[in-house]
Each structure stands twice: as structure tokens, then as C-alpha cells.
Computed example of a mutant assay.
Amino acid sequence: MNLRIDSSIAVALPSPIGDSLIGLVLVNNLIRNGYRPVVFGWVAEHLADWFPHVTVGQADAWQGAFDTVIELLPTGYASALSRSGETLCVSTLPEYRGSKHMVDRAAEVATKVLGLRDVTRENGLVVPAGVVKGRFANRVAIHPTGSHPEKMWGRKKFLGLARGLTHRRWQPSFLVAPAEFGVWGDLAEEGWEVNALPKLGEVATWIAESSWFIGNDSGLGHLASAIGVPTLSLFMRQGLARSWRPGWGPGAVVLPLTVLPFGALRERLWQRMLTVRRVLAAFQTLHDTHARAQHHFAAADFTDAASPPAARIGMLPGAQSRRL
């Protein structure tokens, strides 16, 4: 595909957070190679401060304005942005299929389809000034929900995980969507912190100022990884983890025991086969591995490798929280 440097380009991001963050890999590579795409989608709107080099547009104001419109997945609104009514749908391309990681697929599309020369796996996310990364040294952000119920670990097991973390002197902090607060807010009666932040930028800040993230296979794991927060992701099976594990910052995947003979049965029972003890052990391994890496880099730079002191958990404006 030949893109003229002076052509008008739109990138229409899909609704899922993870897919949008992967789509922003294409945006970042277009910008790196001299193009000036306009990006559409609620994720880009909410995270505009985290992608300062990206131009974000409102679809209603850009009808029929672009020579080329790229959409990662069919969006329903992208064709209206195009002068011809046609779009390049990345998910239909052979370069976006196969067993490679999704981020590597996006980079391959940038190289082989868009013909870009200076290509990176990064999506260009920058932590804004004023957000102190890792500010709360002991806080572990836990995301117990997701858009696909079949990918969600059990509520009781997440509570068991929180108890295990607390026993090890961590500060678990549950992070849910505002619509989920009514279901999860009652955990405060047991003394747990439960937060529902109204904007994705506030969620990003909460994650960035935590030191660790644990969650289901969902978009917030990708966000934590893009920010660079060490991320432990719970997956139902290896094949899914191979392609969809968070693919930027330090992280690890934890899978259920594979003692069942049939794939369909393993998927149906994966929540039972993934124990709290197994997740805690995986988190400890991630912690130890990351600590060794940090010590190595710090020693190489002759800097202090000590972690910042723990600070009291604070709330962002507009957040809902309950803690006894």
C-alpha cells in the first residue's frame, strides 16, 4: 500500500481497550515515519494526555474528510470518515493473523502493508507530568472483572488472593468500573479498598501510581503493561496467552494446572484449576524477577536500587471508594 506523505489519514480505533492500545502501535509508527493521522475512538479521547503526539478527532466533525481510513476491527463509523467510503480493515489482513503476539502483528502490518521503514512495537504512551509512577510502593492494583465473563477468575478466589497479599504486607486495591461498583463495593465491609474511577485517564493514573497490577485477560492489563507497571495476567489457556498477553512492560502470565485431557473441559473448569496459591507464587516470582532486573540496571547506572517508601493510599477526584 502506497501512502503519500501529504495524504490525509484517519485511524478508527475499536471499542475494546486492549485492541485500541494495540491499534495505537500503528498510529505511533505512522507518526514516527512522518505521517499525521487523526485518531478516533473513546480510548484515544480518554487517554489524550497519555498520547501527547496523537491528534484525536470527533467522528461527527470529520465526515468524508480522509483519503485513507484504517480500522483495526470493523467499527461501524470508519467508512463515514472516508472520501470513498472504503477502509483498510487490519483484522482481515493475512499479516494480522497467525500465532504471533498481537503487538508483533500490528508491527508487521506497519512494515509489510503500510510500507513504513522505522517501525517499533511501542504505542507511544507517555506518563503525564504530575503522575508519579510507582508512588505507592506496596499497592497492588487488582482488576477482578472484564468484558468476557468466561475469562474472569472467581470472586472468592480474588478475595483469597487479597488476603494472601495482605498477609505478605502488600496493599491490595480493587479496581472496577463504575457500573460494577454496586456488586463489588460490599467488599469494603471486610475492610478492602474498592475503587470505581469514572474516566479511563483516572484509571491509568491509579494503575501508574501503583507498583503492581494483577488482573484477568482484559484491557486494563494491556494498559498497565503499556504504562510499564509489572503485570500478572490470569489466562485460561496457553494459546490465548501467547497472542494476547500484555506485550510491553515487565509481566508474567499464570495459567491453570493442565491435568485435564480435553481442551473444552479445561476451558470450562479453568477457574477451579487456577488456585490462589498458584497465583500468589506467580506474583512472588514476578516480584523477585523484576527486583533482580531493577537491581542490575541500577547497579550499572550507579544509582540507588532501593524501592521508594510506602505512602498512604489516596483517592482521585470523582472516584468512589469504600474502606472501613
Rank of each mutant, 00 (worst) to 15 (best):
T92W: 08
P198T: 09
I5P: 05
H53D: 11
S211E: 12
P250C: 04
W192H: 11
A44T: 05
L260C: 01
N29S: 11
H101Q: 02
G263F: 04
L257D: 13
F181D: 04
G154A: 15
R277L: 08
E108K: 07
Q171S: 03
R323G: 06
L260I: 04
R155E: 09
S79A: 15
P230V: 12
S91G: 11
L165I: 08
P149F: 07
A106C: 03
A44Q: 08
A305P: 14
K156S: 13
G228P: 01
K133L: 15
G130E: 06
G18V: 13
F302A: 11
G215Q: 00
P308N: 01
L234V: 12
I17M: 12
L114C: 12
P149C: 05
F40N: 00
S15H: 10
P246T: 10
L114D: 13
G134L: 07
L159P: 00
D60H: 14
I227D: 08
V229K: 03
E86V: 15
R155Q: 01
W206Y: 14
G185T: 04
L13E: 03
D217H: 09
G57W: 03
D6H: 01
F158K: 00
D49S: 09
E150R: 11
R163M: 10
L200W: 00
N216K: 07
H101W: 03
E267R: 08
Q320S: 10
S8E: 13
G318E: 07
G164V: 11
L93Q: 10
V254K: 01
S147D: 06
